[in-house]
Nucleic acid binder design. Sequence first.
DNA 1: GCCGTTTTCGGCCCGACTGTTTTCAGTCG
Length: 592
Amino acid sequence: MITPTDRQKNQQLADIFLQMAKGYRYLGTQERFRAIAYQQAAKTLLNLPDDITKHASDIASLDKLRNIGEGIAQRILEYLHTGHIHTWDELRQTIPLKLLDIMDVQGMGPATTRTLHQRLGIQDRTELETAIRSCALAQLKGFGPKRIDNIRKALKIDKEARSRHLLDKALDIGNRLLQLVRNIPAIQQAEIAGSLRRRKETIGDIDIIATCHPAKHRSAIQHFTRLPIVDQLIAGGDTKASILLETPHIQADLRIVDPSAFGSALLYLTGSREHNIRLRSLARDNHRKINEYGLYSDDGSQRLAGETETSVYHALSLDYIEPELREDKGEIDLAKQHRLPRLIHADDLLGDMQMHSNWSDGATDIASIALHARLTRPHYQYIVITDHSPAARIAHGIDSADFRRQWKEIDKVNTDIGKTFVRKGVEVDILPDGSLDLPDDILQAFDWVTASIHSGFAKDNTDRLLKACHHPLVNCIGHPSGRLLMKREPYPADWTAFFHTAAQTGTALEINAQPDRLDLRDDLARQAVAAGVRLTISTDAHHPTQLSSIHLGVSQARRAGCTSAHILNTLTWDGISRFRDAKASHHAMPLG
DNA sequence: GCCGTTTTCGGCCCGACTGTTTTCAGTCG
């Protein structure tokens, strides 16, 4: 089993390799490919589903991992055996670590940082600020007033502007900005691109791509940079501009191209960077050249595609790849082989599997939730009310007697509706010893039992998770990793063992669509599905309006490559009942 | 330092924008 200490090894090594990559970037262009190699290796480590020590029996088995060759394999082994990497220790002797931090500031690349260190002896950000104030910088060749002013500004806004934003919030702002762009008179069409279009769980900046008549590029850009919501202009040329929005301080980029290049530009600006690099080297292999203006023959004499993304993919003999999959995680090979999944769509869901009423910590009564669900999601056939069990004191968890009273209210709501729309569920706490917070006799009377961990986030929770899976009355594990985006890491657990057990026992795992959970996250969900686990997508809504955040869970499932077959709540309630009964009868355990 | 239905050597995505230069290096995405 992966202990917490072991699990940290992947992260520790990745952190070191990222620092080494930065160090090599600092050393100059002759080392840039070495820098890229370490960066790629770090990415491989971070994406590795299991512990690196499992691959570390010898150099040859490490070498089999993508982006890890003989040299880096040696360094991994060295670290696992000695806790040190000699090359890194040496590198650190020559480059002050805090100096590398300076390269995180916008506009401060390796060359600039090197000049400042060598000419002025600057070691960290504080000394850089001092050098600006004392006009020492202005004495250097190549550092005119504008450049110095830009560095000063970048240092000031660095922290805030570089912080990431939850997908939910970024989508809201991005969509409003998109409307403003579409209202610019010269603009013909505009779409969101970048990580926002790929629906990454957190977003650094907002990218928008637009088309207009070539003669009007410049005026459209000017219009954009003068929008009332602009706090600062970061850069503005003929075809692209970067602004800093007023509140929150989030960067937004606009790129304008001719209509004939809309597809190739959207493709380019959507990324990911890794996906683009793979596409471009694939094009090169086929004697083609790809850029944001289109797909061309080698010598650029013939333009082969560009108006739509599909045209570019097809010209490369690839099927169209959905934005959520564009992370260079095997999607290009699948597209080549016509084996891409038909990703789940929000309309495929027939119901929502977790939400809370005012019986525990929800905002409203069950009738209001049901009404809101039926008005806003008319294709839903069911919703599951899952109030908390007693141990969740902060969430006003309720006991067996309360649940029995609650069921009468649910029955009445269903009678008023004229069909069984509201299902009787529970979010029962998994206690520290892995047992459940409610007795079996009441658990077996629910339509749906989701079990969740709400305590003990620091220690390894594998045993608790496995025990819950083995309980015959647990249908689903809620927010399985316990993370909170930008606040709390997933608790340590052996995910491989957990997913295997969930699949074996017929226990579903949840993709929780709360904006700061999105738990399971994309790569773990992908791993779970590969292990044969069925997933649910649910909002965990605590107010009826939060039922709309289901789309965030769907995005997460799409990033994991899920089809409707992987998602349990694409089934009618009969189908869900069969899934539930299969587990209970399989166990045939005497119930307490 | 990695990688290979062009290659075990010689490549490693590609173009816009900026500031400071008088033609381009540096940075970014």
